[in-house]
Write a protein that binds this DNA or RNA. Structure first.
Lengths: 211, 211
DNA sequence: GTCTATATAACGATAGAC
DNA sequence: GTCTATCGTTATATAGAC
């Protein structure tokens, strides 16, 4: 015997998904403190009380959004860095993976960076396993290249910091950087798109001796 | 005839300064939405009502802090970039000026970047005059060097974006980057300090043909 | 100027009808 | 599962005594 009629759609998962999607929009732009439950409910086209029915509190709703954000941003990027590719192939793969994810969610990097302190354990938990692997592999490639005279010596931490800075900062600080560069929205987005090709070239100049 | 006795200190400017200082601490760390007037009052060792006596509202108090922040961060940096120095001397001057300011206020870059949207006009107003001057001068030096075969061709906007990314991002995203690099506070600060010397070298490798 | 006490509004969360 | 109505708390802001 069926619990529900066929033409009365079983809506719960659909609603939960729509709430998460709306919460994402609001939290990404306004942060935890700036976000209002009412605004999320409006965005989802439902009542405020329903948010508490699906997610018990603002905190839990935020945690769900934050975890999704970290999972969306970090693992694809670590997957590339922990492959057994050559150094510059890793860089190209990283930049491609990063821009693919972030171009569709321009507020994602800023959100993660700014809300980091609210859930630091959730973040480090996700990257923990991959981190050591990445840094060790990276340092090994850098040291090997330096011994061969092909690369200039560099700490793996500085290498990854440079790569992430060049990729992420223009998104994180888009507001300020648009003022500095004097570009409108479309022009700035064009500037960002160009970096997708340029950053791998720049990274190669940073570390390769003959570049 | 004196309006006040000599031994009863005229305290108003002192109090206002202390409020601004406390507001700075709280706003820098917690942002506008996360900051509480009570916390600012506690930090200043005064009553909450006194905040409204000196600054009419939370908004006005924030504006004062934000303007101070932008004025502290931007003009010294533009001064260097708008001098008539050689390109790489500008870079070295910029990095020195930036790190000098920011090392003493590690939360300053993240604060300005995140609260940008709340007062975009105040920001662009301050950089407006300097911006065009800087970009024109920079582009001229880059083009000239490229014509001489000394520099690889680069847009001034990308150049400044790279420089700012390498300098600012490690501060803005310190929380996340500490997890990624696996360093504790002291170790990460050491990593940052090393970049003060390294970034000019890296920027030179980015643009100079023979580097 | 600085305080205490309070007004007013907003927000997160819950109760209960349907 | 979704709604309306409301509670309890906290935040900004003001009034008024000293």
């Amino acid at each position: 015997m069926m619990r529900k009629a066929m033409n009365r759609v079983h809506q719960e998962p659909e609603t939960e998904r729509r709430i998460l999607c709306s919460a994402e929009k609001v939290f990404y732009r306004q942060g935890y403190d700036g976000a209002r439950m009412q605004e999320i409910a409006d965005e989802a086209g439902i009542n405020k009380a329903l948010l508490h029915y699906y997610f018990r509190s603002k905190d839990r709703l935020f945690d769900a959004v934050f975890s999704d954000a970290v999972l969306r941003l970090v693992p694809p990027v670590f997957a590339v860095m922990n492959s057994d590719s050559a150094l510059m192939d890793k860089v190209r793969g990283f930049v491609d993976a990063y821009f693919s994810t972030v171009s569709q969610n321009p507020f994602l990097p800023g959100f993660v960076v700014h809300e980091m302190h609210r859930n630091p354990s959730r973040f480090s938990e996700i990257i923990k396993e991959s981190r050591l692997l990445m840094l060790e592999g990276l340092q090994h490639q850098l040291d090997e290249g330096a011994a061969n005279g092909e690369l200039i010596p560099m700490q793996a931490e500085q290498f990854i910091l440079n790569l992430l800075s060049l990729c992420a900062f223009p998104f994180v600080a888009a507001g300020a950087m648009q003022s500095v560069s004097g570009k409108n929205d479309a022009e700035y987005q064009q500037l960002l798109e160009e970096r997708r090709e340029l950053i791998p070239q720049w990274m190669s100049r940073l570390v390769e001796c003959g570049a």
